[in-house]
């Protein structure tokens, strides 16, 4: 398997100053997806933005992993509600104009 778009966990661990077990825990709870290629663990580069967000919440706000999972679920719900609100507003314009 090509590792071109993947980043080794060891690199992330050094860069963000977090332990490797932190990523394992995130993987276990389903917040990230770890891929093992040739006995090295990687994450896809597209997930970096979410990983950075997780690390910020963990380091800056002391939110534990379960808490981050709850936060992410709630943020997704807020996002869905905001999208719905936007569509309803646009639909309302159909009747206002």
């Amino acid at each position: 398997m090509n590792t071109e778009n993947f980043i080794p966990l060891s690199t992330l661990s050094i860069h963000y100053k977090v332990e490797l077990t932190f990523f394992d825990n995130l993987n276990e709870i389903g917040l990230i997806e770890i891929q093992t290629i040739n006995q090295t663990q990687y994450v896809h580069q597209d997930s970096i933005y979410e990983i950075e967000k997780i690390i910020r919440l963990h380091q800056e706000l002391d939110v534990n992993i379960e808490g981050i999972d709850v936060v992410f679920n709630l943020l997704q719900k807020i996002d869905a509600l905001q999208t719905e609100l936007l569509l309803v507003r646009n639909r309302l314009q159909l009747y206002e104009n």
Binding site: L57, V71, L75
Partner: peptide
């Protein structure tokens, strides 16, 4: 500080 940071953190208030 912790309490307010949790409330207003940019990641929680995109």
């Amino acid at each position: 500080y912790r309490k307010l940071a949790r409330k207003y953190h940019p990641d929680l208030n995109p």
